[in-house]
Design a protein around this nucleic acid. Structure first.
Length: 286
DNA sequence: CTAGGATCCTGTCAGC
DNA sequence: TGCTGACAGGATCCTA
């Protein structure tokens, strides 16, 4: 369920730990989770970690790369001198590995990197480095909120006139990086109802929304996403983005931070959607 | 072309 | 206790 801040946190964390290490061994426990011939990575060195939206790319020596998408339940856990784990938070972060949710294991020179994924929606894919930009998923990705102007976003929203703004925010070809949490949080910050028709937003509202997207993800990035580093702290407490900063996500029935009205949860675009019915205006059937 | 729903898969939890 | 259905931080495919 990692969204941009979580994947970026993984990228930064692994950057400190696995660069220049050689891949000594690969075990694929679930064929579906590794696309391509895993033997092609043996003996190669990890040269660079890049992120495209929610996808992580690990460039190896010899012109090959691994593209990793965690989708809903993917995790990357590195066991070296100490453990670094990030992605979908779960007990796997502190469990003995590999376990039954481990799909791929990479043995490196100084440690092991596990790709765990309960639901198997995620994957590791072997690609020639020079073909990365031709990957359909990467090619279609829109800009991140920080790189986009309000006018650009507004133009894109015009192409989805009737669709609910919430579902449009989840479309990675409109703006990339948001998932279900940050879409709900950004709409709350911008005081826009998730059911608002995307085409009805004014330029001003679009600008406010764009700033809100940046803001909620900036906060999460600073904090390391909703990830392991803070999952179990030294004192045993479990703080994460959701506990500390989320104002609507998973807060159904709790009082709104602004007006104390109870947060409501509805289903929209097949996803749980949380909002304040008082602060967030303009929904068609609110 | 857009919009909305089904789908991939495993696990957990509420309710009967 | 055992079953059932709903739901879960994503993206794609299919239909209208």
């Amino acid at each position: 369920m990692p969204e941009l801040p979580e994947v970026e946190t993984i990228r930064r964390g692994l950057d400190e730990l696995i660069l220049q290490q050689k891949i000594c061994e690969v075990k694929v426990f679930c064929a579906k989770s590794f696309q391509g011939d895993e033997r092609a990575v043996l003996g190669r060195k990890i040269k660079k970690l890049r992120r495209f939206g929610k996808a992580l790319v690990i460039d190896l020596s010899g012109g090959v790369s691994l593209m990793i998408h965690l989708r809903m339940t993917g995790q990357l856990i590195y066991d070296g001198e100490e453990r670094y784990a990030a992605g979908h938070p779960s007990e796997n972060f502190v469990a003995d590995l590999p376990n039954r949710q481990t799909r791929v294991e990479f043995k490196l020179e100084k440690g092991r990197l596990y790709f765990n994924d309960q639901r198997k929606f995620g994957f590791v894919k072997l690609i020639q480095t020079d073909q990365i930009k031709k990957e359909a998923f990467i090619q279609k990705l829109a800009k991140e909120p920080w790189a986009m102007t309000p006018e650009e976003l507004w133009q894109k929203l015009q192409k989805h006139q009737k669709a609910a703004i919430k579902s449009v925010l989840l479309d990675q070809t409109v703006v990339c990086g948001l998932g279900n949490i940050y879409a709900d949080e950004a709409l709350f910050e911008a005081k826009i109802h998730p059911k608002r028709q995307a085409g009805s937003l004014t330029i001003d509202e679009t600008k406010t929304l764009l700033m809100a997207m940046r803001q909620v993800m900036d906060v999460s990035l600073q904090f390391g996403g909703s990830t392991m580093r803070n999952y179990v702290k030294a004192d045993g407490s479990r703080g994460n983005y959701l506990d500390l900063f989320a104002k609507v996500y998973q807060r159904e029935g709790q009082p709104c931070a602004n007006c104390k009205t109870r947060i409501v949860k509805i289903k929209l675009a097949g996803r749980g959607t949380h909002f304040c019915p008082q602060c967030q205006i303009g929904g068609k059937n609110d």
